[in-house]
Design a protein around this nucleic acid. Sequence first.
DNA 1: CTGAAAGCGCTTACAG
DNA 2: CTGAAAGCGCTTACAG
Lengths: 333, 333
Amino acid sequence: MRKATMQDIANKAGVSKTTVSMVLNKKDSNISSATKDKIFKITQELNYIPNSIARSLSTRKSGTIGIMVPDITNPFFSEIARAIEDAANFFEYNVIFCNSDNEIEKEEKYIQLLVSKLVDGVIFIAGGKSTKSIDILNNNGVPFVLVDRYVEGYENSYGVYTLNKEGIIDGIDYLYKENKRKIVFVSGSSEIEISNLRLDGYKEAMKSYKIYDESLIFEGDFTIDGGKKATEEILENIKDFDAIFYSNDVMALGGMKVLKRQGYTIPEDVSIIGFDNIQLSQIVEPELTTIGQPIYDIGKESCKLLIDVINENDIHEKVIKFKPKLIKRGTVK
Amino acid sequence: MRKATMQDIANKAGVSKTTVSMVLNKKDSNISSATKDKIFKITQELNYIPNSIARSLSTRKSGTIGIMVPDITNPFFSEIARAIEDAANFFEYNVIFCNSDNEIEKEEKYIQLLVSKLVDGVIFIAGGKSTKSIDILNNNGVPFVLVDRYVEGYENSYGVYTLNKEGIIDGIDYLYKENKRKIVFVSGSSEIEISNLRLDGYKEAMKSYKIYDESLIFEGDFTIDGGKKATEEILENIKDFDAIFYSNDVMALGGMKVLKRQGYTIPEDVSIIGFDNIQLSQIVEPELTTIGQPIYDIGKESCKLLIDVINENDIHEKVIKFKPKLIKRGTVK
DNA sequence: CTGAAAGCGCTTACAG
DNA sequence: CTGAAAGCGCTTACAG
């Protein structure tokens, strides 16, 4: 069975497809209600579903946005993606998702595809130094908003972020007040700007308390596995640390696992603090103390911002920065 | 800057857009290499990105597939989605994702949208009795493959599943051998066919061992929270149970959390077993013993199957059933 | 070896 | 109150 088209409806109703188009798109200010009714009825009968590809070609709007994430399997990103999809859906957009695995070549390939599919905009969580991908977007006039991860040189592009440095400083302040002095830090990959931002926060705070020691810094990669590996390394190299600050929750979860397995009791033997406040941070026992980001809001606001840009609405803030919040739970004592 | 079109390339090269189309699509068996080279060069210069919307309209293929999941935030689904996206990407497809929250109205709305976007096919993880959505797909001739969750009346449609009942039976066998007799079962929502399948497996196995007791059955909903709530209920109502069999991992994780908090030591005080083998099942301590599904393969194969259907290739198996496998880890003793 | 022309299913400026 | 016609950017059967 061939899908019904506007032409079919028009034929059946004895009107032109122009008229059909008008009424289906509510641009029907001056079309007789008799005609309207007839058209609606036929539309129902034929189970008509408009061909939005055809529509897109003519309007140059696809009604879909793209979202680039490093890995949808990482809870932080799946939560953001969910928020974005909810918001997008509310505004009648669909979302195409792409996993970059932090590989910029993969990103570029995806961006090309998205451009070719005429996405109306993209939400971009950069996998690294993603300048080329962004240039493609710019050259083709497709709006984008950067989320979570800064991209060098594009700090003033539309974006929504968390105040990374401040968050870490709050965490160190808290640990210091709880009498922790030997605080190990597990950073993310140095390829990623916010890893460095968070690391800077750590350095600054530790120095201000005069307890900075470079050998306390380890590099992870924002994955569970990265957290595990970094923790094993810590255990081999450092004695008698008071606390470990993982620069995201997922690494903290991986780290806690390793520590428990090695017989450490948390928080008695060692305090742990993470960053993000993913839902899973409450699934471990004790629950993870962390620097909370409003993940859902970040996703929602970035989608709204993108849609505002797409529709050329007035933009209140080009760059939105959320303040993170220390969430005290069971892993620090 | 207007995006370059084939016409632009044609003009610059002094050929027709037919020729350009031919060479860019490798249907260039008999086009002089001089012309080809010229066209490629210009394509580069103009940073030409084809308009695949236009292409789609004419070929009636969009090169995108839809995927319906209950909630991308649930690790089981994000892992499947990841596998699907990887496979799709390999075959040069994009994927639009939709979160149904197990609401069939939401599903229907999404399906309409996907149809209207001319997706070439959809991978459908049903949120419940999704017959209407499937009918829409059928009526519009868009291929689909059902994944993970059966839909009544469509058991013979393209699908990829796990042998649910068998998996549960294996689990009960194992628990029985480990001398567990009072085995509590936490099922998923009874709205979902596979919940019942798994429950049937439990009943059958328990009866065969003559240890069946209806009051040991509790209903969850396949979420972390559902697992927590069911566990609280168990704690209020049942004394001295030997083991809890959660019919998916995510509920087991939630349940373990509650049990630990209440002072239970796992597995000394109570044995736990889950279903799925999501990556996170290894993040808790002790690691979760579970009935493993090959999640990544399920995603990959379902995508491959869909693409085979789309391309009308020969199909070896219309319905693929994976055998689950007991994975012994630390939560049963 | 290459091109003119029709067509995919819509939207929209214009005319009446 | 309604319609004819052009156009969106491709593909493809056909002709030469």
